[in-house]
Amino acid sequence: MNVFRILGDLSHLLAILILLAKMWRSKSCAGISGKSQVLFALVFSTRYLDLFFVFISLYNLVMKVIYLLCSYITIYMIYGKLRKTYDRENDTFRLEFLLIPVIGLSFLENYDFIPTELLWTFSIYLEAVAILPQLFMISNTGEAETITTHYLFFLGLYRALYLANWIWRYHTEKFYDQIAIISGVVQTIFYCDFFYLYITKVLKGKKLSLP
């Protein structure tokens, strides 16, 4: 464990809690892509199955349980409690355009052709593209609530910090996880446009609105 990974996990946890707080306080999930949240729940469900078979550390166990719980609560809020505020018309990204290539690539590029490895690989590739429906929705509506931009910022920052973690681990313990690293780079690149808007607009107190 290193500082980049701890900060990355905390950034991820903060993002998830910001989203829940936004929905809880505003009693609305306007501007939130339910599709992205479904993909995140799928990422956690396929990656954290080892929860029941392998004990790595208390930290690892607790964080996995929190992520799984929060992701399902988030989906319950969007499609259950606050479904009247769910902006279905703007959340139109075709999930099959993400799931089919990700499933295909998981079968092609993996470390081992066994169920647990295929599921882990699927979750890594899926996480890289899971935010696309949310970014697509913002481009559809042309703007995003400020609290939503903070959610996206910490969500993007988490994997960027993981990139630093992999650089650190490579130099200190020759650790190199090619699938996770390449996927993490792609995932972070998808946020670059948003990061630019966040830093030039939101941090200056303006509202995030796309040109």
Partner: peptide, 10 residues
């Protein structure tokens, strides 16, 4: 690439 080692990362 690395083999399928213990997945200690989240």
């Amino acid at each position: 690439g690395a083999e399928s080692k213990l997945k200690d990362e989240l």
